[in-house]
């Protein structure tokens, strides 16, 4: 079965050092899923991520959720990658560390369109940030995040996001294939309002409507926490000993233009003294919606593409 685009609320959480014990990370995830009545009956666990080499195999281990903590402890896992193993309705979590590139780790998820999953991850993000030291946590609507961060115009781009804006600067690379195939086409997204920014290898900042910025984030920012809190465009802020919560838009972003685009522009200017533009090459933020998938087009306006 070919699943539809996984357009759900996804989140990521970055740790400066891999969180230990890993079984507690799982404990908080399972508790949150249980509270939301979304805990899968069976977990399909990859036996590579976080495993010592002697365990490495592409065979997946099917276990009950209550057995996972024991597995983590017995195998002394320092990372994991598991999913609910239900084709088309998969809920997946991955805690991966940067290996040779540093001590940092990132927890992420993948939620298929029809998966049984919470609508938001606020409670889990906050519980994890209260327990472990973090760089930050972000959540977003996946269709928008994928569109804005797509660096290659491929089959998936065209089918999910439509034609790329004509103003993109493009580069071409040979496709390394047995049969002649068109060149790979890469686009320069460095001024996209919804682009991610790499803070350190494998750890990225996302300009999202809700952000939880941990104590380790500020060393990468161009402003202080106090300066950020002093900005006048927040809908809500909360400063806690473990994280600072910023909310600048009532729902996850869906557009890089209009007021949403300008709000993302404010985030770039505040946190990194960087700018953005939409459409690409315009040097500004368009008032009118331009480009993108139909699902993200403003309600009430005719979709022109």
């Amino acid at each position: 079965m070919i699943p539809p685009f996984p357009d759900r609320t996804h989140f990521t959480l970055a740790f400066p050092v891999g969180p230990q014990p890993v079984s507690e990370v799982w404990g908080l995830i399972s508790q949150y899923l249980c509270d939301k009545k979304c805990l899968p009956n069976i977990l399909s666990v990859q036996q590579i991520a976080g495993h010592r080499e002697e365990f490495h195999t592409t065979e997946r281990l099917k276990i009950r959720p209550e057995e996972f903590a024991k597995l983590i402890d017995e195998r002394r896992l320092d990372a994991f990658w598991f999913d609910s193993g239900v084709s088309g309705r998969t809920l997946s979590f991955r805690l991966l560390h940067a290996k040779t590139l540093g001590f940092q780790s990132v927890l992420g998820c993948y939620i298929e369109k029809d998966a049984k999953a919470p609508k938001g991850w606020n409670g889990l993000i906050e519980a994890l940030m209260e327990r472990f030291s973090t760089v930050g946590g972000w959540q977003w609507r996946q269709l928008y995040q994928s569109w804005q961060s797509a660096i290659e115009v491929n089959c998936g781009y065209l089918s999910s996001f439509g034609s790329p804006p004509s103003g993109y600067s493009m580069t071409f690379r040979n496709t390394e294939s047995l049969t002649p195939q068109p060149d790979r086409v890469f686009i320069d997204i460095s001024l996209n309002p919804g682009r991610p920014k790499e803070l350190l290898p494998t750890v990225e900042f996302y300009p999202t409507a809700e952000m939880w910025l941990g104590p380790h984030f500020w060393q990468y920012a161009q402003c202080t926490k106090e300066e950020a809190l002093a900005a006048d465009f927040w809908l809500e802020t909360r400063d806690t000993p473990h994280y600072t919560y910023f909310k600048c838009w009532p729902t996850p972003f869906t557009r890089p233009d209009g007021e949403q685009g300008r709000m993302q522009q404010r985030l770039w200017k505040l946190f990194f003294h960087e700018d953005c533009e939409w459409p690409p090459g315009s040097g500004t933020i368009s008032d009118e919606p331009m480009y993108g998938p139909k699902e993200l087009w403003p309600e009430g306006l005719e979709y022109p593409y």
Partner: peptide, 14 residues
């Protein structure tokens, strides 16, 4: 191809 492109697009390793 499209579904895998989309999936890979959700991963930092993309």
């Amino acid at each position: 191809q499209a579904a895998l492109d989309n999936y890979i697009g959700t991963l930092p390793a993309k």
